Amino acid sequence: MQCQLWMGSLEPNMTESFIMAAFLRMGQRPLAVKVMRNKFTGEPAGYAFVHFQTDEESVDAMHKLNGKPIPGTFPVVRFRLNTASREARANLQQEREFSVWVGDLSPDVDDYSLYRVFASKYSSIKTAKVILDSSGYTKGYGFVRFGNEEEQRNALYAMNGYTGLGNKPLKICTAVPKPKSALITQSATSTTTSASYSSGTEYSQYYDPSAYWQNYSAWSGYYGQGEPAPQPAPTADAAQAHAAAAAAAAAAAAKAQTDDLALVDHKTCIDIEQMNQEFLDPELSLWDSLESSKWFPPDLIEAH
């Protein structure tokens, strides 16, 4: 059957009539709802199929409702929707796909708003998905799937930094597939088949490059990325004072290094006052150099 949506994470008390009423309250008009049951026990299996008049209606409902609270649930249960046609899934896997990763998504961005922004600029958009965690909250990133490689490439630079979706500029990069070994390991750790539809794991074959963008942002304090403006060059007097200070400091450092390496004759008497005077002489010469350059702040000059 075509025009179907898979709906997961159902509570045992969610009947066909309850689900139908929830869709109607959200402005959608499904034709029928079928809650699937365990063929041995007869108990609800935790998922259902929702049938619509057309494929367009089913896809529209999926993007509008995915991740939103289901009316009449407390604690809140959110819509978990995905396409349900096996043939459509097989065809989708056979076709070449061109996807982009979209980062820095605000909590208010859902599947439908992400889809609308990209669909308004690119005609080959197939799906858009905001990735959610196990509690139904956004992870801050999602994926947009294109049917045209040229439009995907255009989006990589045209939509990078886009403002108008949420409260942050978007970060865009190519969705990089994981190696098959990683996918096998990931699928082996899945507990149930129905869980694969809950948070967009059809996109789990792609890496999440959030860490790359965080590292990229860490370079924002370097040259060309908002560094402080260069200070004006010092005056001639100030330059002379700096030169004198540097020379005095170098002499003091050389003397200190020489003194540290010198052998100490413990039989001789140590003249503390003389040693202190020798230590202070370079400091006094530095002060004399600064004083002779008249390199004082204006307020200090007025105070004197």
Rank of each mutant, 00 (worst) to 15 (best):
E150L: 12
G226N: 10
Q28F: 07
D104M: 11
A249E: 03
W295Q: 08
E149N: 15
E43S: 02
G147A: 13
D110M: 07
P30G: 07
R29A: 11
A241E: 01
K121Q: 14
G42Y: 03
T201Q: 09
V35Y: 03
V102R: 10
A32R: 07
E97G: 14
E87W: 14
K180A: 10
S187V: 02
S198Q: 10
S99A: 15
A233F: 08
F23N: 01
S106F: 03
A252Y: 01
E278Q: 13
R86A: 05
S85L: 10
L165P: 00
M1G: 15
A238Y: 07
E149R: 14
E16L: 01
S293W: 00
N167D: 03
I270D: 07
A254N: 09
A256Q: 07
L105H: 05
D265V: 12
N148D: 15
L300M: 09
G166L: 06
D55H: 08
T201M: 06
T127Y: 14
V176D: 10
N167T: 03
F279M: 09
D60G: 08
V76F: 08
K168W: 07
Q186W: 04
V59N: 12
G8E: 05
M1P: 13
Y216T: 01
P30W: 12
N154T: 11
Q205D: 09
K139W: 01
N82C: 11
R78E: 04
G72Y: 12
A158T: 05
V109L: 02
I301N: 02
A90H: 12
E202D: 15
S199E: 03
L31F: 12
T185C: 02
T174E: 15
E97Y: 02
A243I: 01
T193H: 05
N148I: 09
K255M: 09
A88P: 00
N215P: 00
D299K: 11
A175M: 15
Q277F: 02
T41K: 10
Y223F: 10
A254E: 10
F74D: 04
A229V: 12
L300H: 05
A251H: 03
S187Y: 02
S135I: 01
L65V: 11
A245V: 02
A22Y: 13
Q257V: 04
G221T: 12
Q93W: 03
P169S: 14
D237H: 03
T185K: 14
V102Y: 08
N276Y: 02
P71T: 03
P30I: 14
V144K: 08
L284N: 11
V102Q: 13
S194R: 07
L132G: 03
L261V: 14
P230Q: 11
N276A: 12
I125A: 11
T15L: 02
A229I: 10
Q2S: 11
D111C: 14
Q94V: 00
P169G: 11
L284F: 01
P169V: 07
A262K: 10
M159W: 05
Y112T: 00
A303I: 03
T185E: 13
N215K: 13
S135G: 06
K267Y: 01
Y112F: 08
E11Q: 09
W219Y: 07
F98Q: 08
W287S: 08
K126A: 06
Q28H: 10
A253R: 04
R25M: 07
A188R: 15
S293C: 09
I172M: 05
W295I: 06
